[in-house]
Amino acid sequence: MLRQISLGTLGLTIGSILTIIGFVAYAANNATLNLVGFFYGIPLLLGGLALKANELKPIPFSQITTPSMLMLREQQATVTQNKIRKDITRYCYGQDAHLDSALSFLGLSPTDEERPVVTGLRETEVNGSYTLILEFDSPLIPIDVWQKKQEKMTSFFGPGVEVEITQPSENKIELALITTQKELINK
C-alpha cells in the first residue's frame, strides 16, 4: 500500500501545512509553533518539490487481475516476475523510465528518445503457466530488433522464464514473461 503513495505529494502537503502554520504562528507571535513551522515545514516542502520533480508514476494494470490469477501468481511466479511487477507498479524516484537499466543492458535503449516506454502490464495464463505481460510503446525500435534480443532477454529475466515477443498493433510491443514448466517442477 505504501508503494502506491507519492512521497513527493506527501512531502508537499505536510510541508505546506507546517509552513503555513509557521507563518500564522509568526504573525500571532507564537515562537514555538513558528520554529516548528519554519524548521520542519520549509525543508519538507523543498524535499517534496525535489521528489515531485524526479517522480516516476506507477504503471497501471491494463486488465484486472482475477482471484484465480492471484492464486496462480502465488504458486508459480518467479522472483524476477514478482520483482518486475512490484517495481513498475510503484512510485520511483531518480530514474528516467521504468526498466531503463534493463532496456539499456538488453540494447533496446540506444538513446533516451528511442527508449521504449512501458505503458501497461497484465497477468494471464499461457498453457497453464503464470505469465506477466509488459506492454511497451516502441515507435522507434521495430519488432525485428526486439526479436533479435529474445535469447538475451530469456537469460536476463531467467531462470525459469521463457520470453515471447508480439506486436499487437503498430508501435506496440508486448513482452510476455512465461514461467517455464521446468521451474514449476523444481518448486
Rank of each mutant, 00 (worst) to 15 (best):
M1C: 03
M1L: 11
Q4D: 06
L7K: 12
L12Q: 01
S16F: 13
L18T: 04
L18K: 02
T19G: 04
T19C: 06
I21D: 07
A27I: 15
A28M: 14
N30T: 12
N30L: 15
N34L: 09
N34V: 08
V36Y: 13
G37T: 06
F39S: 13
G41V: 06
P43T: 00
L46P: 00
L49C: 02
K52H: 07
E55W: 03
L56W: 05
K57N: 14
I59Q: 01
P60R: 11
S62D: 09
Q63F: 14
T65C: 07
T66G: 09
T66A: 10
S68W: 09
M69W: 07
M69C: 09
L70M: 14
M71F: 08
E74A: 12
Q75E: 14
A77I: 05
R85L: 13
D87A: 12
Q95T: 13
D96Q: 14
A97S: 14
S101W: 08
L108E: 03
P110N: 12
T111L: 06
E113A: 13
E114T: 14
T124P: 02
T124H: 05
V126N: 09
Y130Q: 10
T131V: 05
F136M: 02
S138D: 00
S138Y: 05
L140I: 06
L140A: 10
I141H: 01
P142C: 01
P142A: 07
Q150A: 15
T154E: 15
F157L: 07
G158K: 08
P159G: 08
G160D: 03
E162G: 02
E162R: 09
E164D: 13
E164R: 13
P168A: 07
S169K: 12
A176N: 02
I178T: 13
T179A: 15
T179M: 11
E183W: 13
I185E: 13
N186W: 07
